[in-house]
Design a protein around this nucleic acid. Structure first.
Lengths: 294, 294
DNA sequence: GTATGGCATCAAAAATAATGATGCGAAGCA
DNA sequence: TGCTTCGCATCATTATTTTTGATGCCATAC
């Protein structure tokens, strides 16, 4: 049949080119890597030839791709404008209350929500912070429209969609014996002095999951309930910790802390959760959609 | 699932609006009417509300649709530009020989081929005329790249794609007893004096098919091998005839002939035929594609 | 009032896209 | 250098979407 290029393929091409990475494009588009790979392959077939050169383990736009890229961008942009036109029933207006677990509420959402309200001045966005279980309760009680959490699903009435992937990293004092290394394996860290978030936090439970899966136990653990306090403690050489990459980016750059990646790396999903079948206001839907695209 | 509007739906919306008819849009897009209807229904669902008002047996853009239409046009245009960019391996260049049966070669193709060569000056298009069987032979002999015909398929090695639908109409002298009517049924015409195209012409065989299906036979038939000569003969009140609507449009408008629609109407397809598995040059593919979009 | 044109709807079939598992080569790290 | 991970491709299978052909329904033309 005389099939042609689909929007999906166009998106995959665009994002892959923009991020120079098929996997990350797939992630952004909420696709599996294989789906993205296939879409790209079809795209190249229909577009009349390859648009990337495969070098080693990466992709790079070739001349052809370079030429096509701006056109693809324009087309997708035009399509987005169309969708906006569809949804434009007057400017966005109304309240929406978002729940978020600690790490997300501190290091991720404020900036995003700021941009959103800047773009839609009629929207009043409020933010409530807590751990995952508290979020589920908040939603059920109708005190938040949706929530962004680090944890697992918590009941059949809660609908979960993966949003972004987050990586947990190990932080140590810059003078720590491991500070020069880029990666460490968890086993090497079992007898370190640990400073971790409290029971019930998403960060801790993610860590505990892999530990128990590999039969490890941490020996010296001290709990501190605040991410910032933990970082100060590590800066004070009181031990090492494990936090979201998001939470330590600033210190990693400043050099006040040494940040090592785990090997194998420890990923987890940030997810958007809602109550199944609960009505979502227009602002709430708009905000969720907007977040999904970020 | 958080599905969204597809290009197909966009096209259906656009064409339906442009032609004020879902069926004709379906035809143009080479879809069945039901596929188009469903696509439009989905479009309206995703677009957040109806875009047409259903009045009696037609569709008409409502305010919402009116607002969305130009955006849709822009998006599709942008998409087309992208496709062109894909196919742009330098300007089109080379010869292509098109076969066509009489009616099409006279009343349809010249204008289209003219536009095509105006758009792609590097393309040299030539046209060969004959009846359907001659066309098949021409293709097999490699003397034409593809052909546009009025008839049926003529062998397993010939690939056929419907292109446009054509309607056969009855023409009479303006003073003929039926000339005031808008429609006639074939049975009323059995004993008229007929002037028809020769055996082997697509027009005649289409007519013969319905006649034999309804058990009718025409009594007074005179054959004339040229469409224009037939029209002159009818203008001279020498009888009535039946020709493609395309062939009589000019006279119908000028009023030099009376043109009546048959009831039930008599449709047939113009088709593009090619030899299966035969290589098609870039120009030939481009021309076929371009024609398909017209 | 009978026939017809035009759209909607349905169940079934066909086509397409997405997934999870797996393979393979290139880099990073000890 | 050997081991491991990263990133992409590919495969078979499953899920989803699109298309079709058959009907139904209403409004309009004759």
């Amino acid at each position: 049949m005389m099939r042609s290029i689909t929007l999906r393929q166009l998106e995959v091409f665009y994002e892959t080119a923009a991020l120079s990475s098929l996997s990350r494009a797939a992630e952004k588009l909420h696709l599996t890597q294989s789906a993205a790979s296939m879409a790209l392959a079809q795209f190249e077939a229909y577009a009349g030839g390859p648009v990337f050169t495969r070098l080693g383990r990466g992709l790079q736009l070739n001349d052809r791709g370079e030429r096509l890229f701006p056109e693809a961008a324009r087309t997708l942009e035009s399509y987005d404008r169309f969708l906006s036109a569809c949804e434009d029933n007057g400017p966005l207006k109304g309240r929406v209350c978002v729940g978020a677990s600690t790490t997300i509420a501190n290091y991720c959402l404020p900036e995003l929500l700021g941009k959103f309200t800047a773009k839609y001045p009629g929207a009043e966005v409020s933010l409530r912070v807590g751990n995952t279980d508290e979020m589920a309760a908040l939603l059920r009680a109708g005190e938040a429209d949706f929530a962004v959490v680090e944890g697992e699903v918590s009941g059949g009435d809660i609908l979960l969609r993966n949003w972004r992937r987050d990586e947990l990293e190990v932080l140590t004092h810059p003078s720590h014996r491991l500070a020069g290394r880029k990666t460490v394996r968890l086993a090497e860290l079992a007898c370190e002095k640990w400073i971790l978030r409290e029971q019930g936090s998403g960060t801790l439970s993610t860590l505990q999951n892999v530990l128990s899966a590999s039969g490890l136990r941490l020996q010296h653990v001290r709990e501190i309930g605040h991410t910032e306090a933990i970082k100060r403690a590590v800066e004070g050489a009181m031990g090492i910790s494990c936090l979201s990459a998001l939470a330590v980016r600033r210190e990693a750059i400043a050099g006040s802390l040494a940040v090592l990646k785990l090997s194998p790396p420890l990923y987890r999903w940030f997810s958007i959760i809602t109550v199944r079948d609960r009505y979502q206001s227009r602002v709430s839907k708009a905000l969720q959609k907007w977040l999904a695209g970020k």
